[in-house]
Amino acid sequence: MKAIAPGYFETDFTVAHRQASEREAQMMQRVPAHRWGKAEELGGAVVFLASDASTFVSGSTLTVDGGWLAR
């Protein structure tokens, strides 16, 4: 089993949070990258996990979150 754990990303589901300036500011202060992720930034993780480069990777979750987990 392999998985990707995305952080805060610009999607249709996050529009309300991104438009609420005070709420967005609070959220982005907690993300070390201080910005929303873009969908295309997940591409590298998807390609890696789907490729032969990850054939020995098992039981792992690849975090793509702008530093949220590492903070």
Rank of each mutant, 00 (worst) to 15 (best):
V47P: 04
I4W: 12
G59C: 07
L62C: 05
E24D: 11
E10A: 13
D52L: 05
I4P: 03
F48S: 09
L69D: 06
G66H: 02
V46N: 12
I4V: 15
R23D: 09
Q19C: 04
S51D: 08
Q29R: 14
Q19E: 14
K38A: 13
A50R: 13
E40S: 11
V64Q: 04
A45G: 12
R30M: 12
W36V: 03
S60E: 14
Q26E: 14
E22F: 01
G37D: 02
G37H: 03
K2V: 15
M1L: 15
R30T: 13
V64S: 04
M1G: 14
H17D: 08
V57W: 08
F56I: 11
E10Q: 11
M28G: 01
R23L: 10
E41S: 09
P6M: 07
T11H: 03
A50I: 14
L69T: 15
D52F: 05
A50C: 15
S60T: 15
F56T: 14
S58K: 10
E40K: 10
A16D: 06
R23E: 11
T55W: 04
A45I: 12
S58W: 08
W36H: 03
E22D: 12
A25G: 10
S51R: 11
A70T: 08
R18E: 04
F9Y: 06
G44V: 13
F9C: 00
Q26L: 12
E22H: 08
E40I: 13
H34E: 06
F48D: 10
G43W: 10
V31Q: 03
T14C: 07
R30P: 00
P32K: 01
K2W: 13
